[in-house]
Design a protein around this nucleic acid. Structure first.
Lengths: 250, 250
DNA sequence: AAATAGCTTTGACTCAGATCAATCGAAGCA
DNA sequence: TGCTTCGATTGATCTGAGTCAAAGCTATTT
């Protein structure tokens, strides 16, 4: 595989406390392409904020779909509980991203959304959104675009995982996270992982031991560096990898 | 695993020539929830039909997104060509389904669409659709719903594959196909596979030999029966399986 | 009718990742 | 402070799927 070491220097990262600071609604919406007028309108209907503490549920599978959530700060996972009790992680969601899209075609949430750290979201009641979209149709159009982009991004990655080995899967996962941090204005080289090895494994279709081994291997190969190894779900990863021909990562 | 034999009888399937007959636009749209007025309007802009013969391209990755396509008859695969020349199948699409959604967030097709048998599609120019949606907003709304439903359906399946063994993946795949045939009004027990073992494998993240072995195993276990084994991409599968607690298949 | 090409099946071998198990570090708590 | 719990790491072993190879069937071509 074409993973290449890009940088080898160690930066001082002692100042990094959380992966994400707090996002204003404006910051959430600008990258998405909404104009000032649309943001103003959205601000009116999305004024309600909610705090979710670590391990808390934002919504549960089966509950009625009522709102989308813009993540102002924090980190979430979405997961489904299979009949045998095992849980399957279906995605990770960071500050600045939209949550709740899983329900958009079914009127019902298809998965649980769980906070991986103390988080704050901005609630966007979907009924109001639809109502206002009658006068400003472009609003709904934007949301559908965001939705499809998010789903397609994930979908594309998942499809490619099928043909990858454990190390490549992990690299893909880290690169994906990295890019999403960059989009939100954070360093692409230093960020915190808020999820456990088991959660990563569940998402990537690997066992936690395999994920751990892959981390160790990437570190041995000097591709990543991990501080605070043994901090539970809070280790800091310095990404120093890049796909040689980065066409296969979205 | 909770696969259970449901039926064991052999039906006469000699009359089954193709997996699908030809669909009218009305048939395409009704299950989707469009009303008469909307179908009439859609009919006006979607009058142009195109025939694609086996192995022909409906569109290619990188080409400009201009139209959605409703499949009137036939069977397609979508696939992406990786930089190393291998091709990755990203989906299969049957009569009555909508094709071209891969491009909806990018203005550009992200994959190739190839006919697996002689097929006919109905072209829906997206610009016209958007134009008309200004007067009938519900139309676009419907399309977004269809879109998200299709994407989510696939996405859900793919996510679950990660934790499955080869046999389970194949069973999931066959059940998925089966349900889609049912939705189009065909038997859920008898249908044709238009794709090769290699294409199935690519889609499921397996090698063709593994797919073949999984087919044999399912047959040994009396879960499926295959006629015309050696017909190239045309073998007839009699599905006799059902998940015990079918919550994990979407 | 024979030859060719495409796809499938099956067997033997190998290896990546799952499984089982033990240990360790960090955080929280009595 | 010591105890408990949770997560991470590492080793040993097992197994399912990939790989390589040979042979089979069907359809197509000559």
């Amino acid at each position: 595989m074409s993973l290449q070491t890009l940088l080898n220097s160690h930066h001082d990262i002692s100042h990094i406390k959380s992966s994400c600071a707090t996002c204003s609604l404006r910051e959430l919406c600008l990258p998405v392409g909404l104009n000032e007028e649309e943001i103003r309108v959205l601000g009116d209907i999305a004024s309600h904020k909610r705090k979710i503490s670590r391990s808390g549920y934002l919504y549960r599978a089966g509950s009625k779909f009522q709102s989308l959530f813009a993540i102002r700060s924090g980190f979430f996972k979405t997961c489904i509980l299979e009949q045998d009790g095992r849980q399957q992680v279906t995605g990770f969601h960071m500050t600045g991203e939209l949550l709740g899209l899983d329900a958009i075609s079914t009127e019902m949430h298809t998965c649980d959304a769980v906070a991986l750290e103390d988080s704050e979201v901005c609630e966007i009641p979907f009924a109001k959104l639809e109502e206002i979209s009658r006068t400003i149709p472009s609003l709904m159009h934007h949301f559908h675009k965001i939705m499809s982009r998010e789903i397609v991004r994930d979908h594309g990655v998942m499809l490619l995982l099928g043909s990858m080995k454990a190390e490549e899967r992990l690299a893909t996962f880290l690169l994906n996270l990295s890019r999403r941090f960059v989009m939100r204005g954070y360093s692409e080289y230093n960020f915190n992982l808020r999820m456990t090895r088991e959660e990563i494994g569940s998402y990537l279709g690997l066992k936690l031991e395999t994920v751990s081994r892959a981390f160790s291997k990437l570190q041995d190969e000097n591709i990543i560096t991990i501080d605070n190894k043994h901090v539970q779900i809070n280790d800091i990863v310095r990404l120093k990898i890049k796909m040689g021909n980065s066409t296969c990562i979205t």
